[in-house]
Simulated scan of single mutants.
Amino acid sequence: MTVKTDIGTTTPDRITVRGKNISTEILGQFDFVDMIWWTTFARMPEQREKNMANLVLVMATDHGLTPSAISARLTYLGAPEALQGAVAAGLLGAGSVFLGSAQNVTEMLVRGAAPLTDEASDAQVRECARALVQEFRDARRPLSGVGHPIHIDGDPRIPTLAAVSRDNGYYGRHWRLMEAIAVVLREDFGRPLPLNAAGGVGAIFAEMGLDPLLARGLGLIGRSAGLVAHILEERESPTGQQIWDLVLAQDPRNALPVRQGARRA
């Protein structure tokens, strides 16, 4: 039995990725987005694809003390020898609520916009949005891509995501449908839930015609860089112990906690 991959091979004197010699044809010639596209699609990205991929990677890098950053810092508190474990812990929570929801939005928009063309009227787009919202309400399923616990009056990232999408030719029926969903929620159902970043990123990936899984994948790649930064900061200015102490302080049963292991200076 032969086990192989079409992505890369290694011999004693040569490493190839999708048929290119990494030493003579890739290193020094590809940037990181080039490499993502080459390994994933066996082709180089168009410039407008690179622009959008960089936009998503940069946006996903960090949002402050999010659940992923807290998870990474607390894991580092318990295992400071394992950077990879702390980063992995931060990524494991990338699901339908945090970070991974752009995949859900992409899937929803691809399906929901199937009856539409880019020339569809506003009324047609609104009707598709209304049908989608009603479908989720009837099924009692959460609707991804709208609402934010902090940016209740509108996610400040959305105007930039939309503007860059327009500049690069990726603003069409999927973006219009996502925006119409927020309008329908507000005007038809009395739910003021503006678009969030996942809604914008999902619209971008739907417009680009990319696999929805890549919407989550690029988010994970970008967030990995942010988590490494959090761990480096945690080493110099620890907050993990403070977070743990805050949790302990909420429960009187932990008034005299037993600490195991050595505390870092």
Results as ranks from 00 to 15, higher is better:
F98V: 15
R235W: 05
R137I: 12
E234R: 06
G85E: 03
Q241G: 07
Q260R: 13
Q124E: 15
N54Y: 14
M35K: 00
A69V: 13
V97L: 11
A197H: 08
F41H: 09
T39A: 12
A262D: 12
R130W: 09
G95H: 05
P238C: 10
Y171C: 13
G85F: 00
E49K: 03
R253V: 01
R191D: 15
R18P: 04
I181M: 02
E119H: 13
G200R: 10
D34R: 01
E187D: 14
H230G: 01
E179M: 14
A88L: 01
M52F: 03
T106F: 10
A42R: 11
N196R: 12
L193H: 12
L246P: 01
R216K: 14
I26A: 10
V87D: 00
Q241A: 14
E187Y: 05
G147N: 04
T66M: 07
K4E: 15
A88M: 02
I231W: 04
H63L: 06
H174F: 11
E107H: 08
D34C: 02
S237T: 15
P159N: 06
E135I: 02
L83Y: 10
L220N: 02
I152V: 15
V105I: 07
T75S: 08
G169T: 11
P194Y: 05
R43M: 03
S165A: 12
I36C: 04
R191F: 12
L143Y: 02
A180C: 06
L161S: 03
V110P: 04
A114L: 14
R259A: 13
V183S: 12
A113L: 05
R48W: 09
